[in-house]
Design a protein around this nucleic acid. Structure first.
Lengths: 232, 232
DNA sequence: CATATATGTGTAATTCATACACTTAGTGTG
DNA sequence: CACACTAAGTGTATGAATTACACATATATG
């Protein structure tokens, strides 16, 4: 007969943002703990325990909003992380003691990756987030818990899904140029594409629709704008 | 401040088996409950609550062994299922009351799909499994909880991963013929391949190695046997 | 020894992927 | 107002990959 279970379940969101200067990740900084000098506030992914009456997707949306005020983000579940010691590291002890009723409780977390266009989404800290930042992927220091690992696997999931599913458009503004689309593919898949061949392929995609509209305010030939129609 | 959490976490295994007669799924039948005439024993995927000191993958392996005595099965996590009402259906009530300390507790489950060659793995019921069966995919009746849904998504995950990863070999015996490999692809991806073209492609795969060995006991030209080497 | 059965093999035609360079539309400057 | 600057936008030829397709072969059985 199994021992009765007692564990926590959380969601963590790895929100990627794109803006022609490469891929960024949304991180939050934990608040300081009054009267605890031992606590060095850590940086972490937005994540928290799920509530008793909400689904997982719903929890991911709520937690992301609670901490960063972001709404309407494309969020996709990619992996569950359940190492029994994933929140047992010494560096995380003080913080957990300050925010949890049961700081020593095992926590299993469901990872979601999120995709946004940086120009359309502007996070603001809330709840236990002291501040919010877009960090350059590749210049990420030590994060709380096992969040470096979660982040790596999220990016891996993004890369894999970008080759088979139509998710790249979630990282672009509603109206985008083909150069933007190409740069995005180049930075995520880490390889260069030929401009003419790339455009040949895009023109075969029925869900990328050319608009009767051009870029404005650029100091060169303005590019045609396109939009994405997920249906067909 | 969030209400304190109280929920259960389980793993469910969707083990697919293959044997030239199509894809099968491993199901278990719940034991009858003595002195409960209302309980109609249901069929379900092998799954159970995780223990407090084990990782998720480890839990999937243990639970599968506890219920079916299978060991060494290729198991891959594919999705977490957390609908708050996923174990609240009336049909599952009597059973949960008989096996759980807290039968009304919410249960989130982590889904794993498994792949085996039917000729190499022979399950035997144990623990709360009254019996074990290989059911034809496509002839599956109503299962307990949301297991029909979990099964559908597992097969979808299998199909997607088979196109990008080298997992098909997990469904075949260690030594297999190219016709077996081709049939497997045809049944999973639901399309026909040309024999010569298929073999041309396989010969380019460095991880499929031809053996100096032939089929025996067949009433026709015996096929050459191949094996899979995951490293290179 | 003849028959039945699934194995095993090559080539031509077509489609797809790659490599590559100049003209164009707009903005800013002298 | 012409010239310079910048990124956008476009076609073709070559090689690579994919497709379509039919008959001879090895073994077991009667």
């Amino acid at each position: 007969m199994p021992v009765s279970q007692s564990l926590h379940l959380s969601v963590d969101c790895v929100v990627f943002g794109y803006d022609n200067n490469g891929i960024k990740v949304l991180l939050i900084n934990q608040k300081g703990i009054p009267s605890d000098n031992t606590h060095q506030p850590l940086t972490q992914l937005p994540g928290d325990l799920i509530l008793m009456n909400e689904g997982l997707q719903q929890a991911a949306e709520r937690v992301l909003f609670d901490l960063t005020q972001l709404r309407g983000v494309y969020l996709k579940q990619f992996h569950a992380f359940g190492d029994p010691n994933r929140v047992k590291d010494l560096k995380d002890r003080a913080w957990l003691q300050s925010v949890r009723h049961l700081p020593d409780q095992r926590v299993v977390t469901i990872g979601y990756y999120g995709l946004v266009s940086l120009q359309d989404f502007h996070p603001r800290p809330a709840s236990f987030a002291r501040s919010v930042q877009w960090a350059d992927l590749g210049e990420i220091g030590q994060l709380a818990y096992d969040h470096n690992n979660i982040l790596d696997q999220a990016f891996e999931a993004l890369r894999e899904q970008m080759e088979s599913h139509h998710i790249s458009f979630e990282l672009l503004p509603k109206k985008f140029t083909l150069t933007q689309l190409q740069s995005l593919y180049e930075v995520v898949l880490d390889k260069k594409f030929d401009k003419r061949n790339f455009r040949k392929n895009v023109k075969k995609m029925t869900h990328v629709i050319p608009l009767d509209e051009k870029q404005t305010g650029v100091t060169h030939k303005p590019a045609q704008l396109f939009s994405y129609n997920p249906h067909k």
